[in-house]
Amino acid sequence: MRIFRPLLLGAAALLGAALGLSGCFTERQNEGGQIYASHCANCHGAQGEGLKRLIPPLAGADYLAKNRTALACLIRKGVQGPLVVNGIEYNQPMPAADSHLTDSQITNLLNFVQTSWGNEQEVFTIREVSEQLQACGASDGQ
């Protein structure tokens, strides 16, 4: 039994560490939805439905696929001027996320939008988002 005790203690420590790590990943898994709820839902709606002809919807938005390479910069820098979503022109400014969202948070936010409300777009990698942000001079490297 003495031989097995160190093995059991080691296995228990390993299991505890694994559970701690999975909790860390679980928290990050929901980060996109949490960011959306606190930063985006006031305008775009809790279900991405937008607001009539003032604020474009994100649910079922053709804009997401047509403008994939510009989405990270759109979040970081905001939008001024008209854009067309599902054939409807919108012309309300969207505020910039500038420095209050990191590159990884923008990635999680984009992936939440890409896979919510019937959207079935390809998810982003952190590298892809960072490259987009570097191209518009807005990457924070995080």
Rank of each mutant, 00 (worst) to 15 (best):
E49I: 06
E49R: 05
E49C: 07
E49G: 12
G50I: 15
G50T: 14
R53L: 12
L54D: 11
L54K: 07
L54A: 13
I55K: 00
I55D: 00
P56T: 01
P57E: 08
P57Q: 08
P57D: 10
L58I: 09
A59S: 15
G60K: 08
G60A: 06
Y63N: 01
Y63Q: 03
L64F: 05
A65P: 04
A65N: 07
K66D: 10
N67R: 09
R68C: 03
R68V: 06
A70P: 00
A70M: 05
A70I: 00
L71Y: 05
L71C: 08
L71K: 08
A72N: 02
C73G: 08
K77E: 12
G78M: 09
Q80W: 05
G81D: 07
G81S: 10
G81I: 11
P82Y: 00
N86H: 13
G87W: 04
I88S: 06
E89W: 03
E89Y: 01
Y90D: 06
N91Q: 15
Q92M: 11
Q92H: 13
P95C: 01
P95S: 11
A96V: 03
A97L: 10
S99L: 06
H100N: 13
T102R: 15
T102P: 04
D103N: 14
S104Y: 14
S104V: 07
Q105V: 11
T107I: 02
